[in-house]
Design a protein around this nucleic acid. Sequence first.
DNA 1: TTGAAAGCGTTACCAT
DNA 2: ATGGTAACGCTTTCAA
Lengths: 337, 337
Amino acid sequence: MVTRADVANRAGTSTAVVSYVINDGPRPVAAETRRRVLEAIAELGYRPNRVAQALRGQRSRVLGLIVPDISNPFYAELARVIENCADLDGYTLVLGNSEQDAQRELRYVRTFLDRQVDGLFLISGSSSEELMALFSEIAVPFILLDRRINYASNAYLLATDGIAGAVMATNHLLSLGHRRIAALCGPSKMPSERAKGYIQAMGQAGLEPVLYHSADFDRQSTYDLARDILGRSDRPSGLFATFDLAGISVLRAAADCGMRIPAEMAVVGYDNIQEGLYATPRLTTIAQPTEELGTLATRHLTGLVEGRIERTFGMKLIPPRLVIRESCGWTGSSKGS
Amino acid sequence: MVTRADVANRAGTSTAVVSYVINDGPRPVAAETRRRVLEAIAELGYRPNRVAQALRGQRSRVLGLIVPDISNPFYAELARVIENCADLDGYTLVLGNSEQDAQRELRYVRTFLDRQVDGLFLISGSSSEELMALFSEIAVPFILLDRRINYASNAYLLATDGIAGAVMATNHLLSLGHRRIAALCGPSKMPSERAKGYIQAMGQAGLEPVLYHSADFDRQSTYDLARDILGRSDRPSGLFATFDLAGISVLRAAADCGMRIPAEMAVVGYDNIQEGLYATPRLTTIAQPTEELGTLATRHLTGLVEGRIERTFGMKLIPPRLVIRESCGWTGSSKGS
DNA sequence: TTGAAAGCGTTACCAT
DNA sequence: ATGGTAACGCTTTCAA
């Protein structure tokens, strides 16, 4: 490994001066000396050791991202945006799959902290209570993403407005004339904003909410639940799947039950993952602006890290939007995207 | 930050001894001293700084993963397996999206190397020639994953046998009676093993291969291409999509053209991403054993890193397997999974 | 059995 | 304008 000392040696100067030219400061270097240093760097193919820099300075230029499951398309799409954005700002991303497990989340937070990450993105699958213990440990800027937590603490939260989105979804079904509308949610131990929005909209319409909970957030368990729901005699005519993966499972389950969508049942999803646009029928859904969410999150976090932004605690809710496609029938108002 | 010195202080001993108890060596510690140290660690909540450890030792316990695009389900699923496996072995994963760009791959390799990763997984989107420059820079154990590269160098390659898989796919179509079989491939600048296998199988059957190339590996461009193919008067009766994302685009395009699958056209995909099992119709495909691939890759890389495995250059090809579902019609032989 | 100290590659302060 | 050097937190050798 070629080190700074080698460069200094070759350029006939000291390591301090090499630092000055590399970092353009904190002190000036004579033009001629700078030239020699640059030359030595090029000749030796020297590149600074980031680990040493991280140890010495306070900055590693590494950001941590903890997601429940990277193979879930929504998180994968978000991770892509964040990684790209971070890379643009000169940050490297370390990744952790928490599997919705509070213990694992905590473990990753610690590991990342021990690795001196400059900041942390956390898409938590845990409840607010479980998170409290975690919060107090996080000594770097961090952003809670996507899942709305009942934080009483030092977090900055960035998400789409789940209540508003769910209200939109439910109202869309309502506007299409449906009255027996159910919601397909994830595991019940995690009451979501989306369920709340659905309940609220149903209440406003004077209707009784019906919630179904899947065992997990994956395809298999949502498919199983969907089969179950579709097989019931009191099955709803409109279904709000609180995440697209579940919505797509419903599509599949309906096909397997010989039930046509949207003719015999309307389905709205939530997230707007790419897959929904290619599903058959195309899934009507509530769009989270993934690009915007990821970009804002990264900008904010790097801003915090670099001290360009004042560390304010609070949250920013991005308005979701309804994307009308085929799974609820046409209203003729939009073609969707 | 609580450091080793604080612990030593509190325990009334030296930092060396603290090291000995933490690392269980390299030298023994008296039971009583060890007790005091452990106590101090617990009381102070001390955790070793991994950056300092990495700088001092030669090991960072970080592995790099470079994928073309983490939002591609196949890579996301693979990344998940790798991350889990690495975590089990005590390694943290850093992630890079290369976007199939040789320049970006090189940039990530360098960045990761500068961060002292212990090893590297590379799923390259580049040609063998472009990679040569890159290979020579990699000074740590590394594994080429999934894409078969014409390496002449120091890489260990782990992939499913693309030729065998493509032959399987083509033969399946052939066995169903199809004669006009085309292959839908990714960008032509990247001739794939899969295309070769298809050509080979067609040749063996005395048939003329027909290759179509999409502009990119994403859904949009494969969908566009599929529309184009389906609209042709000389359209094939069987289509081999060399990756599932493309296969699913074909499904969608067919629905939009009013063409029924498998009745009017048979489709086989490749990769066996989860999505294919929930698509309508369910996609018949060639399965890459993602779990096995990721596990083997990680085991091998950590083995290399830890010197448990001799560094042999070469490749390991895992046999793919045909998963028969609905998109080619039934042969009655298997129900698929 | 344990303490002191060198050294990993940087950075930045104190000198000159 | 530049050289020397301490310090970042850790590991391990050398001495005791």
